[in-house]
């Protein structure tokens, strides 16, 4: 508690380079960009392999291997290779981290859809893409959203590492606090990250309400 009051009560964190709103925005920027790019890659790929069944084994195994890529290692490697002029050094490791949950859940959601549903859809004369988008996707949506949510939260929590190579975001408080043994700052930074993650979580819960058909939500 004391740490929280010390951190949020300090004027130091409300203006200038270290202002909370600024750090928050930077954090959101890294996280959102990485997440959006990952989703743009993983969702179409997951839909494709889930629907056609082609290349599924390879993609799922490599997705699991990608989970193992150490973010910190990748981050320092990319910075050393291309420098810090752009956001890519943070984005690349975060994208690598964000893809697997989305990809695997999208694939499993489509592949795991009721075979009778697929059969009936083809039997009524839907074409391949219509079967995918009108029958399978709506049913897979809860699982896909779950993958997106896990991915988004991991990205928000991990984007803190960017601060290690001198980039901004909420990780600054944690890294700087650690360097100066200022645990109030570390703690405050962590709390901000968790709050942001909870906001993301709430956002996904709402999104689920809006875009998942009640007919599907009930079944799960």
């Amino acid at each position: 508690m004391n740490w929280l009051i010390e951190f949020f009560g300090s004027a130091e964190y409300w203006s200038g380079d270290d202002a909370i709103p600024l750090r928050l925005l930077q954090h959101l920027e890294y996280s959102f960009l990485a997440f959006a790019i990952a989703a743009l890659i993983a969702i179409p790929l997951g839909l494709l392999i889930g629907h056609t069944g082609r290349g599924a084994v390879i993609v799922v195994v490599s997705a699991n291997a990608a989970r193992a890529l150490p973010t910190l290692g990748l981050l320092v490697l990319v910075v050393l290779l291309i420098g810090v002029g752009t956001l890519w050094p943070v984005l690349i490791p975060l994208i690598a981290l964000a893809i697997p949950p989305i990809l695997v859940n999208t694939y499993e959601g489509i592949r795991g859809a009721d075979p009778d549903l697929r059969d009936a859809a083809y039997g009524m004369g839907l074409r391949g893409s219509q079967v995918l988008f009108r029958a399978l996707l709506p049913v897979a949506l809860p699982l896909i959203l779950l993958g997106l949510r896990l991915s988004a939260i991991t990205v928000v929590a991990t984007a803190t590492v960017a601060a290690y190579v001198g980039l901004g975001g909420l990780g600054r408080y944690i890294i700087d606090g650690l360097a100066t043994k200022n645990y109030a700052e570390v703690f405050g930074g962590a709390v901000l990250v968790v709050l942001l993650a909870l906001a993301v979580q709430t956002g996904f819960t709402l999104l689920n309400r809006v875009i998942v058909s009640p007919g599907v939500r009930q079944v799960r």
């Binding site: 939260i153 991990t158 944690i174 606090g177 570390v186 962590a190 990250v193 968790v194």
Partner: peptide, 18 residues
């Protein structure tokens, strides 16, 4: 568990360090 999942590992390490 959802809250735990969203904790930055670095922050947990740092705080536990003390």
């Amino acid at each position: 568990m959802n809250v735990v999942y969203s904790l930055p590992s670095l922050a947990l390490f740092s705080i536990l360090l003390s």
